[in-house]
Simulated assay, not measured.
Amino acid sequence: MPFNPLEQRGIPLDRQLRNWRELNVTPIDPDHCDPYTRCRIITMNGIEVEAILFSHQFARHCKDPEVKRQLARTRYIESQQQKAVNWLLPGVSSVLETTLAYEQVAVDLTAWVARSEPDPYLKQAYQFGVLEDFDHLYRYANLYEMIEHRKAESVVDGLTEVMPGRPTRMHHRNPVDNVREPYDKARTDPLSKLHALTVMSAEQQTMNFYMNVGPTYMEPIARRLYQEIGLIEEEHVTHYESLVDPGETWWEQLVDHEYNECYLYHSFMEQESDPKVKAIWELHLNMELEHLHRACDLMRRHDERDPAEVLAPELPNVLTFEPNKTYLRELIADQLDLTTLGTGYVREAHERFQAMQEALHGDEAPPSDRVIAEHHQTFGREYRVQTEGDHPVPALRENS
């Protein structure tokens, strides 16, 4: 049945405040849960964090005290939602196990978005990025076996392959080549707006996570790998946030954020296998419906436009976590040797790319290469989980 959140009423805002008992959610069991339940939790944590940060930025640029108060009321509930969602993650999981799950999110979420994206330019942006997250999963899997002597298979459960993608050392580009062309808000499919906001939010949360957990390790190779991949996640946030039309007003962005939360909570509620987690998705959806209506009221009052002009008339097909092995192997075969130049993509190692590589790496192997070398020295092999034979890793052509 089509679901139009603009026609649905949720829980009144003054009934959404939860007490400590209600916020004391039961975490998932990492040894028995569906890995995609954990992926949905990580995704929605990133979505809620983005909603909170956006609301704070909006408040800092807003002169109207009543609007600030309205944002604060909704933002406090969003903060409770974020705590409930993020606290579903089990405390018994190590940081590295959670890291593997973060990269599983990046791989299968971005791959699904790329498959579903109607705009060819935006689709290419997601295809380009997912091959880098794919390689990050492989590097962390090798680190995980070295440090904790466990297999990444215990986390990804065969749903996501663990093998090399575009080599991580090749992800370091001149910052100017990480900026893409934005979609045109007046012409783009509403689904494209949801995709851009979703992937940007997920990558932003990954960037924040690595910035904070990286220095908590004692092992030098772990500290260095988190530092390197954390820098690349900053590039990814630049890559994805630049896809959003900067001409969107604060009010448009506000309703887009609230609509996207409705879309994702509805999507995850529809596919969730854990009854307790599903109940949280349903509760939060009913909260977000009211947040959306309040954001729409603000847009009508201050932007003097009907939100229906910028939002989809009904929610798109549910966003689904599912294996993307065949799709990713096709991308590996076709796009592994791409890099960026300006707002486009090339297969040549152009001057700016080469200069960045030389300045950053010099004569020293980057941490992402060293973790594989150290793993091979320890175990006599690399760690990977795959269903077929290896693929060759093509090099960028020298630009003559």
Results as ranks from 00 to 15, higher is better:
311 L>M: 10
96 L>D: 03
183 Y>S: 02
20 W>M: 07
67 V>T: 08
9 R>E: 15
326 T>D: 07
250 W>P: 11
118 P>Y: 02
26 T>E: 15
348 E>Y: 14
26 T>S: 10
294 R>H: 02
335 Q>V: 10
203 E>Y: 01
368 S>Q: 06
242 S>P: 04
51 A>S: 10
362 G>C: 04
295 A>W: 03
384 R>A: 10
54 F>R: 09
302 H>N: 04
162 V>C: 05
163 M>Y: 03
198 T>C: 08
376 H>R: 15
176 V>R: 15
78 E>L: 07
211 M>V: 04
271 Q>D: 08
248 E>N: 07
146 M>L: 15
323 P>D: 13
298 L>M: 15
394 P>I: 01
351 E>C: 07
363 D>G: 03
12 P>K: 12
27 P>R: 00
142 N>P: 00
355 A>E: 14
256 D>P: 02
24 N>P: 01
310 V>S: 04
348 E>M: 13
252 E>M: 11
199 V>Q: 09
122 L>V: 15
276 K>Y: 12
251 W>K: 01
42 I>Y: 14
166 R>I: 11
288 E>N: 10
136 H>M: 01
216 T>W: 08
346 V>R: 01
55 S>E: 00
38 R>E: 15
234 E>Q: 15
379 F>E: 03
299 M>K: 06
81 Q>F: 05
93 S>F: 00
385 V>K: 08
50 E>M: 14
75 R>Y: 01
2 P>D: 02
367 P>E: 07
214 G>H: 09
116 S>A: 12
37 T>F: 00
196 A>N: 13
3 F>Q: 12
255 V>L: 03
